[in-house]
Structure formats: C-alpha cells, structure tokens
Design a protein around this nucleic acid. Structure first.
Lengths: 407, 407
DNA sequence: TCACTTTGTGCCGCTCCTAAACAAAATACG
DNA sequence: CGTATTTTGTTTAGGAGCGGCACAAAGTGA
C-alpha cells in the first residue's frame, strides 16, 4: 500500500462559497445581494461578506442604488465589474479564425475574424491565432487572465491532442494544447496580462454546449444535449449537471456515426446512413437535387435552402427528409442520454426553424415511453457559441476559485 | 424575482470529511488510518478525529493490532464494524424475488429467493417483497437503517414510477416507489429497525452498474458503462465520475434500440436489427438453429450454448454472429459516451467469456480513432449485482452524511 | 405618520480543520 | 542488544468560515 508522504494539504476547503457565488453572478442568477443569499442558502451576513470579497477582488460591483422592487428594503444590485479582467477566446473554423476578448457574464467583445494563413500546418495556424489574440490583448486596457481555443475537431484529454483533425489534414495526435500554450507564451502580451498566461484547448461543439448551458438556450437545464452540423460533419456535446461530459479521454459525443437510415448513403466509416452523411449540408443539397458546388460554401447554400422551404416544394421535401433523419438520430441520443433539453446549432438550427413542428413530433414519435414529450428542442441562442464557450473554459479556474485572480 | 423567505440554513457544510471518509472505508480504499489520511488529503490529526467519530457512530472499528508493514510505526487498521447496521436489499426478477441484508463494504448476507406470488399485480408483488424483507429484518440482531428495491424495468425519477414494466404487464406509470414505501411501512420490522424505514427503488441495471463501480469489475474506473442482457432485452447503465447517470427523468441508457444490423430481425419498436433483438438469449438460440422453448428458461439455455462454443461449430458460429452485433452496439455506445471501462453482465458476460478476444477486437475495429483500444472490457464480478447495488442505494444517505445513522 | 416588511451589518460563538511539537511503535544498523 | 531512523498517533493552540442574533436602514401600504 504505497501512498504519498504524509501530511499533504488539500486545496483549502475553506472559502467554499466564493466560487459558487461568482458563478451565480456570472450566470445572471444572482442580480441582487438578496438573490445571492437565497441561491447560496446562507445567512445575509455571510452573503454580504462574500459579495464584499468579490468586490475587493475587482470582479463585482455592489451598487447601493436599488432597483424597483416590491416591498421592504430594496436589495443592493450585484453587477460584474465593467473594467474587470478579461480572457481571450479564440476559435478556429474551416475557413478562418476568430478572436475576441470576453469578460465575465458571457459578454463578448467584438469578434475579429482573420483569414487562415497561407500554410495550414498546426504550428502556422495556431501561431496565427496567438498573434491575432495577442494583438487584441495588447490593445485593451483590461487585465487578461487566460486564453482558450475552440477547435473543430476532437481534443483528447488530458493530453490536449487532436487525434483526427480532418479539416486541415493535420497529423494524428497533433499536440494542439501544447502548441497553443507555446504560441501564446511567445507573444508580447503587453504589461497587463498574467504571465505565464494560462491556456486551454477544447472542441468547439463541447464549448458551444457549455456556452448555451450557461448563457444561452440551455439555461436551467440539468442535462443539455447540443447537436450541430457545420462544414464537416455532425458534432455533439453533453452537459451533465452543469459540467461538460467529455468522456474519459475527451472523445465523448461523437454522434456522427449513429445509423439513421440503414439503406442510406455510404459513409467513410464503412457503414451506410450515418447521421454525418444524412444531415449535413451536402445531404440537404443532394436531397433537393441541387448541384453542390464542391468549392463553394456548402453550409451557406444549405442554410439558404432551408429558408426557401416555405415556398419551394422541392426544398420543403428535402428539408422534411433530412429533418426526419435528424429526428431519428436525436431520438436515439435521447434514449441513451435522456437530456431535459436539446439545443440545435449550425445547419440543424436552420432545419428546426424550417420545420418547427415536424422535428419535435418526429423525435417524440421515435423515442421510447414518451421520454421526449417534455423535452424542449430549442435553437441555439448564441451567435458565437464557440467563442463564448472558449471564454467559459478560460474563466473556469477563476470561477472555481476567485482568489486566483489576485495571484 | 420571488425567492424563498430569507435566512434558510444549508445542510451544514461542516463535517464534510465524515462522508468521504466512510466512503473510502466502504470501498476498501482506506484499510488503515494512514491510508485514510493520505486519501483524504488531510493531516493525521484530522484523519484521527474522523476515524474516531466513525467508530463512535458504530460504523468502523479501529484495530490497534497492526498489520505487517514496511518501516516505521504500523498504522491502525480500519475495519467496518462487524455488528454495525445493515440495510435491506431486494430485487425483483422475471421469475422470482430475492432479498438479503447487507452491511457496509458491499458485503451481502445469504440471498433468500422466493417465488412470485400467485397474483402479479404491482401491489401483490411488492407486498410479497416487503414481507420477505421484513422477515429477514426481524430475524437479524443488527439495526436496519433502510431498504432499496431493484426492478427489472425503467424507473422514472424523481416520481419513482415505472413507465413500462413489461415483465408483468403492469400498467404504465405504476408508482413503484410509493408502493414499496407503503408496503414496508405496513410490515412489522421488529424493535431494531429505524422507523419509518427509508426506502428507495431503482432500475436493476443501474444498480448493478453502481455495485460494479464500487465493489466489482469497475473499481477505479472514472466512467463505467455496464451492458447486460437478461430475460427481457438489453439493459445499460452509466456511472459518470462515481455517480449514476440516470438522466433527467431516470430513463437514460435505454440502449436496447441501437441499430446493430440494418437488415436484422424486426423489433417491436418498429425498426429492424435493434440491439435488443439481436443480442438477447432468443437471438443467440435462433442463430444456432436451436428451437427456443418459449415456456422454458431461455437465458439458461443461451448460457449453456455459450459454454459449448469451443467444441460445437454451430454454437461457435452463433456466438460469433451475436458477438459481432454486440460489438457494434458497444462501439456505438463508446463513441457517444467514451467510458474508460465497459462491464458486461448477464448473457453478455457469457458471450465475452466465449469470445474473449473477438469481442474487444471487434469493438475497437468499429470505434473511432481507437478510442476503445485502451478501454478494458470486463466481465461483471458480482454474482448479485442488483442486490449489492440496491444496498448501495440504501446506504447512499448514510455515506453522504454518516451522522444520519445516529438519528 | 405609523406599522410592516425586507434587507444590510456588526458581533459573538461554534465547528472544522491546520500547524507544530511531542510521544509511540516499529525497522535498520551498528 | 542498544540506538538511530522512520512512520504513525496524539495533544494543543489557533485560525478561518459561517450561523445566530440583535439592531439599523430603507422601502411600501394604510
């Protein structure tokens, strides 16, 4: 029975309310001090002390000027400090890269989009991201406490490698996290950024799910399933009890190869009728008999198609076919995961908009024991879910222990 | 912004080490006081106090007589008190009911099996279970602190109803939890049982997964997927970070309708080739061309078949076919859930024993990016997983707050 | 203006836990 | 066989977090 020396200190169990309190303000669930008191389930005295400490850390402002209320003494408002610290959120797309600064509360600065560099090897792409991010950090007057990057491919945990970065043909097990950390470390971040700047890398669908759960269409859902379709296949993500379920290696929710049509189109995986090839932009265009320009913007073309479904019979039929396939996949996932909310993003969001009744009805029909009849299927509410989610990832350590911002 | 009164007390944050400490002893991870110190990450003084408190509660004995060790002063042994309290574990099968008393540590008394009562309506069956359980409780000299029942059908949370108890043709939404609570309350439990006796009801596959995670083949797995096949279809369960994922309504992991053969046998759900109908006892017997006696013990016949696979070519071919289907289903689940261990029970356990290489290889072949090549597929290690799991469920509140045993 | 309600604040005390120093019980080595 | 070393148990003091309480403050409603 070998075990570590002896007296090892735990990361102080104390100060346990500070993290939950900041998270409540961060997610907008504690707009006033009395709401914080109730949500934490502590006495007013304790909540006051906690709020004061968050204010002392420069994260929160306690506004004496009240907000119109019902009866009794109005409670002080709790707002996130406008000049509080920020984090860098970055996202890599198939056709570009985006960076933005983000404060607490899911607030995102204006995203800045850059084209991909000429060379698309891992180091060049990630280096370009770091450069664009550093520019943003230097130009801002607020303190930058971390950076996170959303990637359009799986990210293996805890190594932070990309086992199958198909978009750019990166080699297997590309050390994305290490590359990003090194690239950020090599940048000039100006005088106000934390050195070394903590960095993190994760899959974009996972981050979008986290973002929707905290700030979007998944608020107050216990188990949130997000499904999205973009340029390259279908992505899924699951939030369980408020925390991302990324699986034991970070590879969970690879939902693209659920069978939704046994006689369907062949998939590179060897099977037929995978969700990936039946509900992606190319599938929708093919179902409508449209020539899918291989060099063009398939996603944009497919989105446009969903918008013409109300007047174009061929488009409508195509939407219905793909929606039915998608419903089968969602029902299968619901049978396994039993979420209490499903959020659709990317092309799937547009499909839901084009068939707002047919899709939920089909999901309910295919799920067992009506386990979906109470499950709302919602459209994603965030325009930049990946970026907001990256911000959440970067904020993570500070939400767990707000004292960290003082380090 | 309506919220509850004001000064509401949280369930004391203090005494936070008592629960984790008992859980460590309970799962065998802290056989000595110094192991407890290390596992809790606290000082020796604190661990000593905690151990003393557990001893004072009558749950643990601190044995001064040491166990042979390496160097230095030998640490005191921590054992579960032999005459400590017990809970009642009960399980309903398709062809009978089983009850047993269980102490901490996953120890199970001799299970007592009873036939089903003549009438199989919910109240009669659950009443018979309660009666058999009460007999056990009265006859034992230890204090009984709770009771839990494993049912072979889904259990909706938090209502505790059975939406589809196909086995006995119970009506939908049978209030199983309420019936069990009432049935136990109506029993004479002798002088030592807690009154009222806390009761709980859950699905047997879920409980078996919990049991395997704590005391069986799933120990020190982070995310454990259990798949089993019994008399009635395929059951699945998932343990995430040590806690059961039962979904938002308790209906998660209904894996029986994953498609594993697009051209396979028809399933009552309307599709073809569901895991349910392709990997259950009847499917195995059919694949071997055996007449499946509909009134007989399909499960036992199928199990026997797997044992003849090494000398009977027809049996081997049947096993291989079903194993391949099962592997497809497991790979699909692994793609979604990314567990770090898979445990097979019921008939699937026998299939693994009959094809110990073919099954893992096929799972790896069908999973993406080799996410399964490090995932052990193990046979269930507990003969009575459902009962052990029911005991875990009944112990749950006391593991969370050992002070509760003094109530 | 006077209840009444709701919220903020200061103070005390309790509980849990760490730190530090010391005592105890074994092994390793002369 | 005795002593040094190692590992563990125990005692004590002290600190941090949080509840309880009493009181003050700031509104609404009659």
């Amino acid at each position: 029975m070998p075990h570590t020396p002896t007296t090892r200190r735990a990361p102080d169990r104390g100060r346990s309310l500070l993290g939950p309190a900041l998270e409540l303000v961060h997610t907008g669930r504690a707009p006033t001090r009395s709401a914080l008191t109730a949500a934490l389930g502590v006495t007013r005295a304790t909540a006051g002390a906690v709020a004061g400490e968050l204010a002392a850390l420069g994260l929160v402002t306690v506004d004496q000027h009240p907000i119109g209320s019902s009866r009794g003494r109005p409670s002080h408002r709790l707002d996130l400090a406008p000049d509080g610290p920020v984090v860098l959120a970055a996202q890599l797309h198939a056709d570009g890269l985006t960076v933005a600064l983000a404060g607490l509360g899911g607030s995102l600065g204006e995203p800045v989009r850059h084209p991909l560099p000429a060379r698309t090897d891992p180091a060049s792409v990630i280096g370009a991201i770091a450069e664009a991010g550093a520019e943003l950090i230097r130009a801002d007057h607020r303190r930058c406490l971390g950076a996170a990057l959303a990637l359009p491919n799986p990210v293996r945990e805890p190594e932070g490698t990309a086992p199958a970065a198909l978009t750019f043909g990166w080699p297997g097990d590309t050390p994305a996290a290490a590359l990003f950390a090194a690239a950020m470390a090599a940048q000039d971040l100006g005088p106000r950024a934390r050195r070394p700047l903590p960095t993190a890398v994760a899959n974009d669908a996972n981050l979008a799910a986290l973002a929707e759960h905290r700030h979007g269409a998944g608020r107050d859902a216990r188990h949130l399933l997000l499904v999205t379709s973009g340029h390259r296949g279908v992505g899924g993500a699951l939030v369980v009890d408020g925390r991302l379920h990324t699986g034991s290696a970070g590879l969970a929710l690879e939902v693209g190869h659920l069978t939704v049509d046994p006689l369907g189109r062949p998939c590179p995986c060897g099977n037929r009728g995978c969700l990936n090839v039946e509900t992606d932009p190319a599938a929708l265009l093919a179902a409508a008999g449209r020539p899918s320009d291989p060099t063009g913007q398939l996603l944009d073309q497919a989105r446009e198609l969903t918008r013409t479904a109300d007047r174009d019979p061929a488009a409508r039929a195509a939407v219905h076919q793909v929606v039915d396939r998608l419903a089968l996949g969602l029902a299968g996932l619901a049978n396994i995961l039993n979420p209490d909310r499903i959020v659709l993003a990317g092309l799937h969001r547009d499909l839901l908009a084009a068939a707002p009744d047919r899709l939920p009805e089909a999901v309910i029909r295919h799920s067992l024991w009506g386990r979906c009849d109470q499950v709302p299927i919602a459209a994603s509410a965030l325009a930049h879910g990946g970026l907001v989610g990256a911000a959440e990832l970067a904020w993570g350590p500070y939400l767990a222990d707000p004292q960290g911002v003082a380090g």
